[in-house]
Write a protein that binds this DNA or RNA. Structure first.
Lengths: 117, 117
DNA sequence: CAGCATCCTGCGAGATACTG
DNA sequence: CAGTATCTCGCAGGATGCTG
């Protein structure tokens, strides 16, 4: 019963949305890309901007995105080491989707406010 | 060490993308909404359209979305029981985001094809 | 500053079998 | 047809502590 479970990383890969969703895995991922779409950012900046994310998770997501070719990691040779993350071309292609998500999010927020009133 | 872990269902809820992503939890969810955006569908139709999804998972996601108010579930009083799922107003609001995701997905597919060539 | 190591949890998901 | 039940795995994530 060894290989009982498929090693398929993204179950949705065969469906229309899957091509894109494969890059948005993880609850924090869209947020990271969104922040990076505003320009390069350093590790600690991301940590501050994304409320309540732990260093471990941020690192994991960052590494994952780097491996997928979505972001670029550039180590600055300064005395206190600083690392800059930025979107790659591939990453830039994802931003319209994220932008739409954000925009829908705002709409939903307004909607919720109206419903409460 | 009881309530060690926060019960927060969506860790991203405080971030800009979180408002929307809260409704897209689960790898299959965007796909379901996307299919439903084309019109109401029955359980078995969804199962067929979404390749390789198990009945259990589909049911779970459907129930979840219903609970969130994203979709509506209507039982048709026919002799072989049939159930129709459709997007609610809230669900309709999510479609722009899904559409963007799908569109980006197509673009990525082309990009990959070009890279392979 | 930018991480890594370790340990632990819950959820999404897959497989299979069964039901009103 | 439209589910439910049961079991299992793996991954994303949280907490805490340590390092070049």
């Amino acid at each position: 019963m060894a290989l009982k479970y498929r090693k398929n990383k993204s179950p949705v890969a065969l469906c229309p949305v899957g091509e894109c969703m494969a890059f948005l895995r993880g609850a924090w991922t869209p947020n990271i890309i969104w922040l990076l779409s505003g320009g390069p950012r350093r590790f600690s900046e991301l940590r501050k901007d994304i409320t309540n994310i732990s260093a471990k998770v941020l690192t994991t997501r960052l590494r994952n995105l780097e491996e997928l070719g979505v972001i670029r990691r550039q180590v600055m040779p300064t005395s206190p080491p600083s690392v800059e993350y930025s979107l790659s071309d591939l990453g830039e292609e994802l931003t319209p989707a994220i932008a739409a998500i954000v925009s829908v999010g705002h709409r939903l927020k307004k909607r919720a406010a109206k419903a409460a009133a």
